[in-house]
Amino acid sequence: MSVTNLLNNWAAVRHFHPIDDKPHDPYKWAMAIDLDACIGCNACAVACYAENNLPVVGREKFQHGQAMHWMRIERYWNEDSREFPDQGAEFLPMMCQQCEAAPCETVCPVGATNHTQDGLNSQIYNRCIGSRYCSANCPYKVRYFNWYDYPTTDNVWPAEMNYQLNPDVTVRGKGVMEKCTFCVQRLRAAEVTAKGEGRIVREGEVQTACQQSCPTNAISFGNLVDPESRVYKQWKAQQVDLAKDEQEKDKREGGTDLRGYRIFEDLRPYPSVMYLERVRESAV
């Protein structure tokens, strides 16, 4: 965030989305999650813990709301006059939506969270001063604060467990904010390899940890400006446009039977994750 932005008419600037000028060239990382395929097994969350050096805080801190799960499975109960409510369990994997016009970015007092050129919402740990304003402004509540110095806390990484830490990811200290990065360490490695070979990253060349571990392939991830990518095809088929705060299909009379939607779209954060609605028995 530059001072120039703040001095200009900020509200007017934020009203439109500048995607028509093709800023995402050659990458825009995006995701599509099929909730009909999600079985709520939590494999994605576990994979995220392993990949991104997330501390396991324990029961007590979890109850205080200090869990550090970048990827969490939200549960909803759709009882729908069923005999057992468990039959109506619905799951929604929730992680940072990598918003195009991210509410967290505008409020950071030190510019520790920025937008990258390939459409990610970056979080720079060594720049963060821990004001927690970004978390307060996040509509998805997917930012997690290090209330303790977890590397030195007992039973987070007991001796020898520290050898399983991912060397490509910083181990965060006390007092910084963190969140899902779309496994940026993998993206950057793939981008550098591709650039050295004079091409762009191919579809399927890079996977996020959650996508890799999903047993039902509910998560697809890729480059949204690449027409060959699965995620592009899904967004296209569901008629979800990144740059709109209300999709054309939703404006239609009588609604639509397309399942794609983005959470809190009307708040205009322009999230980069599209969810595919669960198909309910009543609708079949």
Binding site: T4, P18, P23, N114, H115, Q117
Partner: peptide, 15 residues
């Protein structure tokens, strides 16, 4: 060249 030319686009919201 890393120089792509649009690097600081998102920081200024101006091309």
């Amino acid at each position: 060249g890393t120089p792509i030319g649009k690097q600081d686009y998102w920081y200024t919201f101006q091309k």
